[in-house]
């Protein structure tokens, strides 16, 4: 077994240099997936590059157009940013359903995204929110929609040596809000059997001007259901529109039978949860 090395760089430049220099190395943010995978022997990186000593990655910045959430910001810290909670309560809730308090004090949304589990809780909420990821590597930065990061279970579009340094969530529009719910057999400590997020914008009359519905654990990657948006935009989110969106969500699902749930149950739950998150988001957005 090759020796493993641990590095804790202070700057992004040092981190990208280390990742570039050590082929087969892995960035470490919260470690709640990576360390488990290392312990069980599923992954055997040659080097660990700990991002948590890089000051800029531990911040949440409130820019004019977006929130920038550093790669080393643990999920529980999101709750301390009042503006973020006010504008994107669903994103903050989604990130704070992962594991336990102990886990969320370590786990990060960037890590949740790059672990590329179809059941990742924060990802549907980020997709619904229209978030992007800043992908950093030796050759610089690029900004990509978060839904383009995971490509298959456990696989990402990141090139060797690249890592997600920041997640950007646009500032909420007037009349907009979001919500995330998941289906699990227990009340905590479970992986989502299905997760669903809605990001809704209502105009002054209560008409939906924008809707993004994303579901997790029902396909190899998180799905953004365009047909659900079509069903909702232009409506007042009345029962008929919501029912159409539910049907669109269930139809879009392409789940598998596994130890956590069946195909039929997942399809049905995707619709039910979609309905519920639309309702919650609508209420939060000021609709009736």
């Amino acid at each position: 077994m090759p020796d493993l090395a641990y590095h804790a760089p202070d700057t992004i430049k040092q981190a990208t240099d280390l990742l570039a220099a050590n082929k087969g190395s892995r960035p470490l943010a919260g470690g709640t997936d990576l360390i488990v995978q290392m312990q069980s022997g599923r992954v055997a990186p040659v080097a660990i590059v700990d991002l948590k000593r890089i000051a800029s990655l531990k911040e949440i910045r409130e820019e004019a157009g977006y929130f920038a959430i550093g790669a080393a910001v643990p999920c529980t810290s999101l709750k301390n940013n009042k503006a973020l909670v006010a504008e994107w309560p669903g994103v903050v809730e989604a990130a704070n359903l992962i594991g336990s308090v102990q886990v969320r004090n370590r786990a990060t949304m960037s890590g949740n995204l790059c672990n590329a589990s179809p059941a990742a809780d924060s990802v549907p909420a980020l997709v619904a929110a229209g978030a992007t990821a800043i992908v950093t590597g030796a050759s610089g930065e690029r900004e990509v929609p978060v839904e383009q990061i995971p490509t298959a279970p456990g696989k990402t579009s990141l090139a060797d040596g690249e890592f997600v340094s920041e997640i950007r969530i646009p500032r909420q529009q007037k009349g907009g809000s979001d919500a995330y719910l998941r289906s699990i057999p227990r009340t905590e400590m479970d992986i989502a059997v299905v997760g669903a997020a809605a990001s809704i914008v209502l105009d002054a009359s209560g008409t939906c001007t924008s809707a993004r519905i994303a579901v997790g654990a029902v396909a190899p990657t998180v799905l953004l259901v365009e047909d659900a948006s079509k069903a909702l935009v232009g409506s007042k989110l009345d029962d008929a529109a919501v029912a159409k969106a539910m049907a669109a969500v269930s139809a879009a699902c392409n789940p598998i039978d596994d130890k956590r749930g069946t195909v039929a149950y997942r399809k049905a739950m995707a619709g039910v949860l979609a309905k519920r998150v639309i309702q919650i988001a609508r209420e939060r957005a000021g609709g009736n």
Binding site: E188, K259, R260
Partner: peptide
Amino acid sequence: YNKDGRLDNAGFLDYRIPVASD
């Protein structure tokens, strides 16, 4: 068990004993 006869939930994440909030 999966179809190969291997235990598919050999951990506390998927062997779900009650937690306090349940």
